[in-house]
């Protein structure tokens, strides 16, 4: 078990620092956002699993020769208050750390989901009071607002797309359709679930560069995925023009919100336009397959190490 604990520890370190730094600086993710998203999720899951697993395996080593026996013996020890030979304070420390880390991650996820749901509820109420239904599009609302704004408000039961009057004025009907398809893709592909998981991870481990890198990368990847989904029904040209027009329209500023806290142009829109203009080649299928295989291996290795009998 000490061997398995050591390997898990190495994996945890690799997944917390060099692997995400390397992935964040790679250029291929925009060529295949779905593949990159799978890899980021595998890194996050495998990272958490090996971090907790390493502590658990190390702490349980004196109690048994695998995870199940170790846990059983440990619970027995808790019952009768005696420790087996070879169990030291350091093992108990590792077990407490594993428990606290697991709780910390779970509680952060719960808190992040709760906060986001509360913000969404208030936001949904405001939209209901201030908007009117957009004709002929289900679950789409129109806000009487001058700046060109479009967004998807996801929800556990229902989601909605919100458009502003300024947007409708700015775009042609084809471009508008591209925007609606893009926003709807966020809802149907449940991007909110991925974003919130990474958001929680970031909140739980703020001192880890990996969590920040991953959060930003994933936020961009879901935009690319929504673009790809919209491209199935609208032309690349219309979508790219819509992005340009909305970006430039927003940069013009907004009187309601102070310019200092106003954030308009995002480089992600430049990546999106580059893809839609055909300046980014899609990833070769065999490379994608290789990356997915690597992601599966990332998950399989800590799982195997945890479940294997004595190593």
């Amino acid at each position: 078990m000490i061997g398995a604990a050591a390997l898990l520890g190495l994996l945890a370190v690799a997944l917390a620092w060099p692997v995400p730094v390397f992935l964040a600086s790679a250029s291929w993710p925009s060529r295949s956002p779905a593949t990159a998203l799978v890899l980021w999720q595998a890194i996050a899951l495998a990272g958490a699993l090996s971090m907790i697993g390493a502590l658990l395996m190390f702490g349980l080593a004196p109690f048994g020769d695998n995870l199940v026996h170790g846990l059983q013996a440990f619970l027995g020890s808790l019952g009768d208050g005696t420790l087996p030979p070879g169990a030291h304070f350091i093992q108990l420390f590792a077990l407490s750390a594993a428990l606290l880390l697991g709780l910390h991650l779970a509680l952060n996820l719960a808190a992040t989901v709760y906060t986001a749901e509360r913000s969404r509820r208030r936001h949904r109420e405001l939209v209901a009071l201030l908007s009117s239904p957009y004709p002929e599009q289900p679950r789409t609302r129109l806000l009487d607002y001058d700046a060109p704004v479009a967004y998807c408000l996801p929800g556990t039961v229902r989601s909605m797309t919100v458009l502003s009057a300024g947007l409708i004025q700015l775009l042609t009907p084809e471009q508008l359709r591209a925007v609606i398809e893009h926003e709807r893709a966020h809802a149907t592909q449940r991007h909110d679930l991925v974003l919130i998981a990474f958001r929680a991870w970031r909140a739980a481990l703020p001192w880890f560069p990996v969590a920040n890198l991953a959060g930003e990368a994933v936020a961009t990847l879901v935009e690319l995925l929504a673009d790809d989904r919209a491209r199935r029904v609208v032309s690349d040209r219309d979508l790219a023009d819509a992005i340009r027009l909305v970006r430039d329209g927003l940069s013009a500023g907004d009187a309601t919100i102070g310019a200092s806290e106003f954030e308009a142009e995002g480089p992600a829109s430049a990546v999106r336009i580059a893809r839609l203009d055909g300046r980014v080649r899609p990833l070769e299928p065999w490379v994608s397959a290789l990356v997915v295989a690597f992601a599966s291996a990332l998950l399989a290795v800590p799982t195997t190490l945890l479940l294997l009998p004595a190593l």
Binding site: A116, H123, P154, V179, R247
Partner: peptide, 21 residues
């Protein structure tokens, strides 16, 4: 926490993405 609340059509990105592009 906006990215956890809603998904905007354009915007909400960091400096690092410029380098990525």
């Amino acid at each position: 926490d906006r990215e956890a609340v809603l998904a905007r059509f354009v915007g909400g990105v960091s400096e690092d993405d410029a380098a990525a592009l």
